[in-house]
């Protein structure tokens, strides 16, 4: 295996007395699609928050593209190429669909304070360029027609997809998806799986996916890690995970064995 893109080594985080994630080691290679599953409260989202710099681990190491990322701020991590979506959708509620994505595209629009005040030629062409890129992304996800709608007034499934578009607009190397299929109907889920595969190929991304829907996870992930009570209890390809006794126990309770 080549050098991993994202590498967590013995990462632990405690909130007061509670250990939310304990001694987690996981690595994701370039172009890999890895699933992270586990019962509610297993620490999946907390792991995301540590990778994206929202929380700082109590101990352990996280590195991205060979660079230690401990203490690096979320906005800098986004600049390095880590993008995410949120489990409890966090769109910019007073902005249109287009503007939501434009905020993320800001990373690649280098116009500053004074040039935005002056609105010169260079500023205008940068603005046109940004909008073109954003529209391209929106169209891939069939959200182009809704560009001027208030983001939070869209149906739930569209909001989830918009979160993915927004994350992609930062031009990430790795995309962290936190339950992207939650609240979607089966056909939307099919579409979503197709889209995830598509953007992964098209933009040559690595993807780390937290998801409860086993059909989605087993359908698209190349490798799966299972968390329970903050501890990684299993890791392997979908087949191995489905037949792993500890995983079955975690999901169905000891009685099922």
């Amino acid at each position: 295996m080549s050098l991993p893109l994202l590498d967590l080594k013995n990462v632990t985080i405690k909130f007061g007395g509670l250990t939310a994630v304990s001694d987690l080691s996981i690595s994701i290679g370039e172009g890999e699609l890895v699933g992270l599953i586990g019962p509610n409260g297993a620490g999946k989202t907390t792991a995301f928050n540590m990778i994206t710099g929202v929380y700082q681990p109590t101990s352990g190491e996280i590195s991205f593209a060979g660079k230690n990322t401990l203490g690096v701020k979320p906005n800098q991590l986004a600049g390095l190429g880590i993008a995410r979506t949120f489990q409890n959708i966090r769109l910019f509620r007073s902005m249109s669909v287009l503007d939501n994505v434009r905020v993320a595209a800001r990373l690649h629009n280098h116009e500053g304070f004074f040039s935005s005040l002056w609105r010169g030629k260079r500023w205008r062409s940068a603005e046109v360029e940004t909008e073109k890129n954003v529209m391209e992304l929106l169209d891939i996800f069939n959200l182009g027609d809704q560009r001027d709608e208030l983001a939070t007034s869209m149906p739930y499934g569209d909001q989830r997809r918009l979160e993915i578009v927004r994350a992609l607009a930062t031009r990430p190397k790795i995309l962290l998806l936190d339950e992207p299929a939650a609240g979607m109907n089966p056909s939307e889920k099919e579409d979503l799986m197709r889209l995830i595969r598509f953007v992964k190929e098209r933009y040559q991304l690595s993807v780390l996916l937290v998801e409860h829907d086993m059909k989605v996870v087993m359908g698209i992930c190349e490798r799966i890690a299972v968390l329970e009570y903050g501890i990684k209890i299993a890791e392997g390809n979908p087949k191995e995970i489905q037949s792993h006794p500890k995983v079955i126990e975690a999901y169905l309770g000891a009685a099922a064995i």
């Binding site: 994206t52 929202v54 701020k73 979320p74 906005n75 986004a78 600049g79 993008a83 995410r84 949120f86 966090r90 769109l91 910019f92 509620r93 007073s94 902005m95 905020v103 993320a104 800001r106 990373l107 927004r166 994350a167 607009a169 930062t170």
Partner: peptide, 10 residues
């Protein structure tokens, strides 16, 4: 609108 989402997007 959302500081955490803003930070996560650069």
């Amino acid at each position: 609108d959302d500081e955490i989402a803003a930070a996560s997007h650069g």
